[in-house]
């Protein structure tokens, strides 16, 4: 079973993603801030990281940097409201696979997760 780490500070989104991804047959780990995200990443093997960019304590870019240091091939999907081009470019330069803007379509997100995991295999 593929394991996905979701890092997002909006409890409603966390709950929805957890529900949706579990329903799709994934094992889901959730963190509501960047620090917790780093801890979960260090203590668990994950197959995909789904993260927001604006996070408390450790921001999304720092989290992506750490994830890529640990596993350069880890597929990462960013889910964010940020429309700042420089932040989005930073994320892509770090090797982010996909970028989804909020508000988002949960079915589309699910398809993108599937595609990213398939590409990583």
């Amino acid at each position: 079973m593929k394991r996905i780490l979701v890092v997002e500070d909006n409890p409603m989104i966390v709950k929805s993603l957890e529900f949706k991804l579990r329903q799709e047959g994934y094992e889901v780990l959730v963190a509501q801030d960047g620090r917790q995200g780093v801890e979960l990443m260090e203590n668990n093997e994950i197959d995909l990281l789904l993260t927001d960019l604006m996070l408390p304590f450790v921001n999304g870019i720092q989290l992506i940097e750490q994830a890529k240091q640990k596993d350069p091939d880890l597929p990462i999907i960013v889910l964010s409201t940020s429309k700042q081009e420089n932040i989005i470019m930073d994320a892509f330069n770090l090797g982010v696979e996909d970028f989804i803007t909020k508000p988002f379509n949960p079915n589309e997100l699910s398809l993108r997760v599937k595609r990213s995991l398939r590409n990583a295999d």
Binding site: N10, M12, S16, K102, P103, F104, N105
Partner: peptide
């Protein structure tokens, strides 16, 4: 409204 703010497409 919390869901509406974050979702689009069929969910909306």
């Amino acid at each position: 409204m919390e869901f509406v703010d974050n979702f689009k497409g069929e969910s909306l």
